[in-house]
Amino acid sequence: MTETDQFASVRYIVDDVQAAIEFYTAHLGFTLLTNPAPAFADVARGPLRLLLSGPGSSGARATPEPGAAGRNRVHLVVGDLDREIGRLRAAGLAFRGDVVAGPGGRQILLADPSGNLVELFEPA
């Protein structure tokens, strides 16, 4: 595997790169890879690399219609959803709605500081 194909990368347009770095590293177990400029950073968790593109980045300028985040989201599997919810609530984070259960497991949505969604999922 070459360095460029170690990760599956997802670009999130963020309002504040430093706030996004703090959110993903402090609360969701990501590691900061690079932060070469105030307008950009990338963080990783396992094979997932998030490209955090601030307003001054080329990635953000390439987005034709800025606005609210859509229904797309990063999906993170957790071993104990209730424990994760308690931990994140204790850190002052708010969730979007309640836990939803289905045949495959349970999930809840969390928004990063820019409104991008993160799904925490506990398999059945």
Score class of each variant (00 low, 15 high):
36 P>V: 07
120 L>W: 11
86 G>W: 03
3 E>A: 15
12 Y>C: 06
69 A>C: 05
86 G>H: 06
121 F>R: 06
93 L>S: 07
115 G>Q: 00
59 G>V: 05
16 D>W: 05
97 G>W: 09
11 R>E: 03
105 G>W: 04
76 L>K: 07
70 G>S: 10
58 S>L: 12
39 A>K: 08
32 L>K: 02
72 N>P: 07
34 T>I: 13
121 F>Q: 02
53 S>F: 01
66 P>F: 00
68 A>M: 06
74 V>W: 05
29 G>C: 08
24 Y>F: 12
90 A>M: 08
12 Y>G: 00
119 E>N: 12
114 S>L: 00
62 A>W: 09
59 G>C: 07
46 G>C: 07
71 R>V: 14
94 A>P: 04
53 S>A: 14
46 G>I: 11
46 G>Y: 09
93 L>A: 06
32 L>F: 01
40 F>Y: 14
11 R>F: 08
20 A>Q: 01
112 D>W: 01
112 D>Y: 04
74 V>R: 02
121 F>G: 04
26 A>I: 04
103 P>S: 11
21 I>K: 03
21 I>R: 03
120 L>R: 03
3 E>Q: 14
90 A>Q: 09
120 L>S: 02
42 D>M: 15
25 T>V: 13
16 D>Q: 09
93 L>F: 04
76 L>D: 02
55 P>K: 03
72 N>D: 15
83 R>H: 13
109 L>P: 01
17 V>R: 09
66 P>N: 05
83 R>V: 13
55 P>H: 08
24 Y>L: 00
53 S>P: 06
102 G>L: 07
73 R>N: 11
65 E>R: 08
73 R>Q: 14
10 V>Q: 14
106 R>Y: 08
101 A>H: 14
23 F>H: 05
121 F>A: 03
96 R>A: 14
36 P>W: 02
47 P>N: 11
120 L>K: 02
48 L>N: 05
52 L>S: 09
26 A>C: 11
115 G>D: 00
105 G>F: 10
89 R>I: 04
9 S>K: 10
84 E>F: 02
115 G>W: 00
42 D>V: 03
104 G>W: 14
84 E>V: 00
64 P>F: 05
67 G>A: 10
98 D>T: 10
17 V>W: 01
123 P>F: 10
5 D>E: 13
74 V>L: 13
108 I>V: 13
87 R>S: 12
116 N>S: 03
42 D>W: 09
56 G>A: 10
22 E>T: 15
